[in-house]
Simulated assay, not measured.
Amino acid sequence: MERRSNAAESRGQQDGRTPFERFVEATYDRVSRAPFFFVCVAIVVVWFVSVPFWADLKSWQYAIHTVSSVLSLLLLVLLENAGKRSEEAAQEKLNVLAEALSDLMESQAQHDPSLTASVRKLRDAVGLEARH
Rank of each mutant, 00 (worst) to 15 (best):
L74V: 08
K58N: 15
P113V: 09
G127R: 09
E87W: 00
D103Y: 03
D124F: 06
E21C: 05
S10F: 04
A63Y: 01
I43D: 06
D15N: 08
R11W: 03
A42M: 13
F48P: 01
S32F: 03
F37C: 11
V31W: 02
R85G: 10
V126D: 00
S59D: 12
R30I: 12
R22F: 13
L79T: 09
Q110M: 05
A109H: 07
E9D: 15
V24T: 02
K93I: 08
A90Y: 00
A90M: 00
H65I: 15
D56L: 09
A90Q: 00
E92S: 08
G127Q: 07
L122S: 10
D56W: 04
E92Y: 02
E21Y: 09
V119T: 09
V45T: 09
I43Y: 10
A8Q: 05
S32Y: 01
A55W: 03
F23Q: 01
T116Y: 05
A98N: 03
V46D: 07
N95K: 08
F20M: 07
D103T: 02
V45Q: 04
V49N: 04
E25D: 13
A130K: 15
F37P: 04
A82G: 00
K58F: 14
N95L: 14
T27K: 01
S5H: 14
L94S: 02
L71P: 01
G83Q: 02
D15Y: 07
S86P: 04
E21A: 15
L128F: 08
A82W: 00
S69F: 15
E92T: 07
V45D: 03
S32V: 02
V119F: 12
S5Y: 11
K58S: 13
E9G: 07
T66I: 13
F48V: 12
D124W: 09
S59T: 12
R123C: 14
R123Y: 11
A26V: 13
F20C: 03
Q13H: 05
L71K: 01
E2L: 14
T66R: 12
T66G: 09
E87G: 00
L73N: 02
A7C: 06
F38A: 12
S72D: 03
L101D: 08
Y62E: 12
L128Q: 06
P113T: 07
A130S: 12
Y62C: 08
E106Q: 11
S50T: 11
L104T: 10
E80N: 10
Q110F: 05
A98Q: 02
K58D: 15
Q14P: 04
S59Y: 12
F20V: 11
L101F: 10
H111I: 13
E129F: 05
K84S: 03
S10W: 01
E21K: 09
S32G: 15
F23E: 01
E9H: 14
L76F: 11
E129A: 11
G12Y: 04
D15I: 13
R4G: 06
K84P: 00
R17W: 05
V39G: 06
L71A: 14
N95G: 04
T116E: 14
I64K: 00
A42P: 05
F37Q: 10
L76S: 09
L79C: 10
L94Y: 00
S5V: 14
H65P: 02
